[in-house]
Write a protein that binds this DNA or RNA. Structure first.
Lengths: 148, 148
DNA sequence: AGCTATCATTTCGACTGTCGAAATTTACGC
DNA sequence: GCGTAAATTTCGACAGTCGAAATGATAGCT
C-alpha cells in the first residue's frame, strides 16, 4: 500500500536516472534523446510528425533536429512525394548507439521477468495499466479544477 | 514480457503528465514543484540541503526559492542557531494545495489497490523493486562505458 | 499556364531556467 | 580581534523553448 507508492516513486527516479545516463552517453540533452527515440521507433518521421509526437513547438523541433544532425544521429531529406516535407531518418550510428544502450537493458529486464509465472506477469501488467489509469484520471481532475 | 515494458513506458508518461498538471495547477515549473515536494516532505529545509536534495546548483536553488516565495508557498527565515543558514518552510497555502492535488490521488490509488490480496501486493512491490534495481544497474553500466 | 491560398519548415527576437564564479554575510579557531 | 571557512546570493553568460513572421513548395481554380 504505502510500499507501492514508495516503489512507484523510486521507479520513477531510476527511470529518470537511466534516461539521464543514456542522454549523457550519447552527448544529447533529454529532449533530443526523446526525439531520437521517437525517430528510431518509426522508419523515418517528418519534422511535423515529430513536432506532434514530441509535443514541442515547430521551432524547438527544428533546433532539436539540427542538434541530432550535427551529432550524426539523423539525416534530413526532403520527401520526394511532397517536397515541402522534411523526412528525418536515423543513421546507422544511431542504431548502433541504441543497441548499446537499450539492448542490455532489455536483456536484463527479460532476465528479471523470467522469475515470474504467466499469471504473475498478467497481474503485473494489470497493475501497471491500473496505475496508469488512476494517474490519467487524476491529471484530468486537476486540469479541470476551477482557478484558485 | 513485452507488455510489461510497454506498461512501464506508459506509466512513466502518465506520471509525467500528472506532474505537469500538478505544476500547472500551482502555477509552478517542474523544478519548483520538485523543490516544494522536498520541502513539504521535511518540516523545513536549509537552502543548502535543498540544493543537495534537488541536485541543483546553489544559484538555481536560490532562484527556485525566490519563485516559491513570491508565489506564497514557502517562507525564508534565517536559522537562529546558525545565521548563515536560510531555512525554507512551507506555508499553510502550500499544505492546502498539496492536499488538493495529492489527497485524491492517494485516495484513488488506495481504492485501486484494495482489489489486491496481501500476497499480490507483495508481488507488486517486489516487481517494482526489481525494476528499479535493473534500471539502476543499467544506468551504472552506461555511465562507466568507455568514451565512444 | 498563372494566381492565390495553404501547407511544412525554418528563421528571428524574446524569455525562462540553469550554471560557474565572484561577492556578501556569518561563524569559528587561534 | 583576525584570518579562514561556510552558507547563501548576485552577476554575467549560455542553452533550450516559444510565438510570430518569413521562406519554400503544392494544389486548386479559372
Amino acid at each position: 500500500m504505502r510500499e507501492v507508492a514508495a516503489g512507484l516513486r523510486l521507479l520513477q527516479r531510476s527511470t529518470d536516472a537511466f534516461d539521464e545516463a543514456a542522454a549523457a552517453r550519447l552527448g544529447l540533452n533529454r529532449t533530443d534523446l526523446r526525439c531520437l527515440d521517437l525517430i528510431l521507433a518509426e522508419e523515418s518521421l517528418s519534422a511535423g510528425a515529430l513536432t506532434a509526437a514530441a509535443k514541442l513547438s515547430p521551432a524547438a523541433t527544428t533546433t532539436a533536429i539540427d542538434r541530432l544532425e550535427r551529432a550524426g544521429y539523423v539525416t534530413r531529406t526532403r520527401d520526394a512525394a511532397n517536397r515541402r516535407r522534411v523526412l528525418v531518418t536515423a543513421t546507422e550510428q544511431a542504431r548502433t548507439a541504441e543497441r548499446e544502450v537499450y539492448g542490455p537493458l532489455a536483456e536484463a529486464g527479460a532476465q528479471a521477468l523470467r522469475r515470474y509465472t504467466k499469471d504473475q506477469l498478467a497481474l503485473i501488467t494489470g497493475f501497471l495499466a491500473t496505475a496508469c489509469r488512476v494517474q490519467e484520471e487524476q491529471s484530468a481532475r486537476i486540469s479541470e479544477l476551477p482557478e484558485a
